[in-house]
Design a protein around this nucleic acid. Structure first.
Lengths: 340, 340
DNA sequence: TTAGCTTAGTTAATTGGTTAACATATTTAA
DNA sequence: TTAAATATGTTAACCAATTAACTAAGCTAA
């Protein structure tokens, strides 16, 4: 057996080895210009030799900053949202990559009650928060009360003085409409979430309507359906009763995928009998047959921007205007000219 | 303006308000039986009134335990793995749910170098680690050197004295083979990852072979393909040249989905001309047409077991035998009797 | 020459909670 | 009636950093 090495070297150990005070070591670690080059070199080499790694816990306690940010996925919505959607893995990976460059670590939470939230935020002393979608007023009260910088994703309310990131849903809807119109469709339907629940979908519908209006058309049919595979699946039966409709714009890819699936089972050929366009550009768009034409949002960019905005927010730079990403049209095989 | 409340109450504040020592407050918080009911009640009510929330950072520092566990997704593999696979969101959600019940928070990391790893583990003082798949020997050396309890997921090496969770790949392969045999198939192909890279897939192939051997058959064709949509897509051309093959078992759903897609483009009808069975049971299995028959692994259970095993490992209870989950057959519409 | 400024450090309080060791007061047992 | 045991606390060292305030030596300029 060799010497029993202490499992972790502290600045005290380094200081003792070099023969200086712990403060000197701390100054070197933090790049403060208070130590001579000679001493600095000695400290640095002792640190390397002894395998020194800073104890973030101690730093957090003494500085009153945790260098920890929380990303929260609410549990009150349908659990489908998380497991269905590669969106979250992809967002998280890109967010983490960016925020970790700045020395922050990411903690995740699936919280339900305001009490859970408070415990989570306060006990860990989170420096910042990323919130998805809508939370209850009680939860917002907690967040606001503790003055934790936070950013909103896929949700925007002018009432909140917070940075937020969203996609230009209206423009997305417009692009979808334009695409269908250019293909020659006249009777276009929209399938989206219940209006009061999904502001996002109603914006997408507005965009569609704007495109239709430009050419003197209007939405032929507006179906409400939950934002799930089954929601789209069930909508197919209604569509089957409206043979005059030659194209559908779905507020989400997942709905479009469910719709296509059932349509095919009902002998409705896509895109020959019915053109379908979605929104999001999930990976699954390329798996389905025919591959789904859709409006793409750039998820990696969203993750990166979320990190950038949160970093700014933590410095007190809050941009009350939502940061809006521009969606793009991705044409695949689920849309074509109408038959007649 | 009201009174300027201190932003966070500490045990000192509580102690002062009640007129006891901070230690008494600490004992109450930790349920130590050292304080009279009367005093305890006073402390508890002061805590409630002053909105006391424990400072985990201070607890971590003084106890030398962070109550933080890390879940690490390696970056060196194809990024597809993460964004393609709802597996990770789903695993994470269930893992977090279970581990948070025991007072741990989850921190995520996408680490690359051994140095990144070391900084991550040591500086936050992580109490435990969840690792996915295979890491470099240098990274394992770091982990072992710091004696952090960890568990392995989807990877098992008897060399490591660590708990691990995997699925019974061999049994899964057997179930797939059995299903195809019972449908009457005689010429069955296998598509999987390169043998040296994917131990998992070779186990699955072994299971298939075992089932075939029971009825005096053997694998008609073994194709190697990367575990991606494109890997499956490209394999379809080879299969087209082998009309005698009536069924394929793919080592992963994603490969099966790519294969089905191209097969349909090549006018190979599924399941009439070719039965396809996958492995994993991704959500996408129900999106594709026809819905994919597959071997299911119970992801929520996997997340929960990962948490349970990690909790045990942190108590020093390491089970060197891998914990093996049993896969099940999920029959959908991509498999049927062969035409002839 | 001497007051004043740098440079290169050190000292010690602070962050919030834990816990071993100690101190009384009260109960119990002999 | 005492000694021992129990109940109910308090004190203070400790965890690993940070940082304001202090110090001493060396240098500069008038």
């Amino acid at each position: 057996m060799g010497k029993t090495k202490k499992s972790k070297a502290s600045i005290y150990d380094i200081a003792q080895a070099v023969g200086v005070s712990p403060a000197a070591v701390s100054y070197v670690i933090n790049g403060k210009d208070k130590v001579s080059e000679k001493t600095k070199a000695k400290i640095l080499s002792a640190m390397a030799e002894m395998g020194y790694v800073v104890n973030q816990t101690a730093v957090s306690l003494s500085r009153g900053k945790s260098s920890l940010v929380g990303v929260c996925f609410p549990l009150n919505s349908s659990s489908l949202v998380f497991s269905d959607n590669p969106f979250y893995s992809e967002f998280l990976a890109n967010f983490e990559k960016e925020i970790s460059k700045n020395g922050y670590d990411t903690i995740i939470g699936y919280l339900q009650t305001p009490q859970d939230f408070e415990r989570w935020i306060v006990s860990r002393g989170l420096d910042g928060l990323v919130l998805f979608g809508l939370y209850s007023p009680e939860i917002f009260k907690i967040i606001l009360a503790h003055k934790v910088p936070f950013i909103l994703t896929d949700f925007y309310d002018p009432e909140f003085k917070a940075s937020s990131i969203r996609i230009d849903d209206e423009k997305g809807g417009y692009l979808a409409g334009k695409h269908l119109i250019e293909l020659g469709h006249k009777n276009i339907a929209f399938i989206g979430g219940p209006v009061e629940a999904s502001k996002v979908d109603s914006k997408r519908l507005e965009g569609l309507n704007a495109a239709l209006k430009e050419v003197g058309l209007s939405c032929a049919l507006h179906l409400e359906a939950p934002t799930t595979f089954d929601g789209g699946y069930n909508a197919a039966t209604v569509l089957k009763e409206h043979p005059e409709i030659t194209a559908v714009f779905c507020g989400s890819d997942i709905v479009a995928i469910g719709l296509m699936r059932h349509a095919q089972e009902l002998q409705v050929s896509i895109p020959d009998d019915l053109s379908v366009i979605g929104f999001d550009d999930l990976q699954a768009c390329t798996y389905v047959y025919p591959a789904l034409t859709t409006i793409r949002q750039n998820i990696p960019l969203k993750g990166q921007l979320a990190a950038d905005n949160l970093l700014k927010a933590m410095k007190g730079e809050i941009n009350p205007d939502p940061q809006t990403l521009t969606p793009t049209l991705v044409v695949r095989n689920s849309t074509s000219k109408p038959r007649f």
